[in-house]
Amino acid sequence: MKGIAQSENIENLVDKDSIYVDKTEYIYNLTKQYDRVFISRPRRFGKSLTLNTIGTLFEKGVEPYFKGTWIYDKWEQDKYPVLHLSFLKFSVTNLADFKREFCNEILKFAKANNITGFDDDNEPKILLGNVFSAMPDGRQLVLLIDEYDCQLTANINNKELYEEFRTLFRAFYAVLKGEKHIKFMAITGVTRLKDVSIFSVGSDIKDLSYDHAFSQMIGFTREEIKKFYIDYLRLGVSFEKHVETNAVTDADIEEFLNRCY
């Protein structure tokens, strides 16, 4: 029986005897069809791992992390530097701290990718705009933003701070609209775009939250749970019914799933 890996980094799964549910066909189709996308899902649904998988493909390719997956012999993209921002790691209580942490990530990215000759700034929108301006024509990056609405949902009852964050985000996404140095951009969050008035200036972002073609890209279907987690399902039923695992029937599994899924 393989272990269940609670990981947001696909590279960590390679050296572990862990279960990985292959979603790479969806990711392949996503990157072929769209340049800028948004997907909303509840927390703990696998959004972070999905973004990490996309970033790893663009930055490092398929070796060695994707052997045995659907995408292994199909991915032919050139490699691109990836700016991966997780807003979960930034302050939700202080706007100045948030800006500093945000800008530090942009500066670390620029340094790691030898992007120089730009002016520093303590406003994320200006700093990233300066980094774009310092990049030569034809050079592109991949931008991944995880949990874009973390600061907003944390301050839903703090009207003043909520509005400060909303205003900052609106200005930041305005800088991204039509930016030629972005090869691909993906944003995730809990709140859908239409529910937060910060993306009207970034209307080139395609909201795929309810798109049927990508509905199974994040999270597990019932059939995937039955296929990849059957041993754990049997253990759950055996524990509940006080029977041996070999005595658990298919009907027991279905009944168990009906209550848990």
Results as ranks from 00 to 15, higher is better:
E254M: 04
H212F: 06
Q140K: 15
L85Q: 07
T153R: 13
K89W: 05
K108D: 15
V82D: 01
S7T: 07
L208V: 00
T245Y: 09
A5M: 02
C150E: 15
K108R: 15
L235G: 10
R222A: 10
L127T: 07
N29L: 10
L233D: 09
D97F: 01
K74L: 14
K60P: 05
S209C: 02
K16I: 06
R259Y: 05
L161H: 08
Y162V: 00
T188S: 11
K47A: 08
C150Q: 14
L193V: 04
L257D: 13
V92T: 13
S238G: 05
T116W: 01
Q77E: 14
F220L: 02
R234H: 03
W70V: 01
F169W: 09
G138K: 00
F199L: 10
N155H: 08
V201E: 15
R36S: 10
K79E: 15
M135V: 03
G61K: 00
L233H: 04
F172I: 07
R259F: 02
F169A: 05
F102P: 09
Y20P: 09
L168P: 12
R192T: 12
M217H: 01
I106G: 02
H242D: 15
D73P: 06
L141A: 03
E123Q: 14
L51R: 04
V62T: 11
C150T: 14
M217A: 06
V142K: 03
Q33Y: 08
K108Y: 15
N29Q: 14
A154Y: 06
F132T: 01
H84K: 10
K241G: 12
R234N: 09
L51D: 00
L141D: 05
Y80C: 12
V248W: 02
V131Y: 04
M185Y: 05
L233A: 03
A110D: 05
C150Y: 15
K194S: 10
E160V: 02
K226C: 13
E224T: 02
V131H: 01
I218M: 05
M135I: 09
E244C: 00
T53Q: 07
N155W: 07
K183I: 06
K89M: 12
G129M: 09
E63K: 10
T221C: 08
Q33V: 04
Y210C: 14
D137A: 07
S200G: 11
Y26I: 00
E105M: 14
K16D: 11
Y173C: 04
Q6H: 10
K180I: 00
F38T: 07
T191K: 15
N94Y: 01
F199D: 11
S18R: 02
S18H: 10
F228S: 04
D22F: 07
L161T: 04
G68K: 07
G68W: 05
A112S: 13
N52I: 01
K32F: 03
L127S: 06
P124V: 06
L193P: 15
K99I: 06
V175M: 15
V237C: 09
M1E: 02
T191F: 13
F228Q: 03
A112G: 13
D119V: 01
Y173P: 11
F38S: 10
N157Y: 12
I39C: 11
A171H: 12
R234K: 13
Y34D: 08
K16L: 15
E255V: 01
N12M: 02
N122A: 10
L127D: 01
V237W: 08
R234I: 02
M185I: 04
T31Q: 12
Q77P: 02
K2T: 05
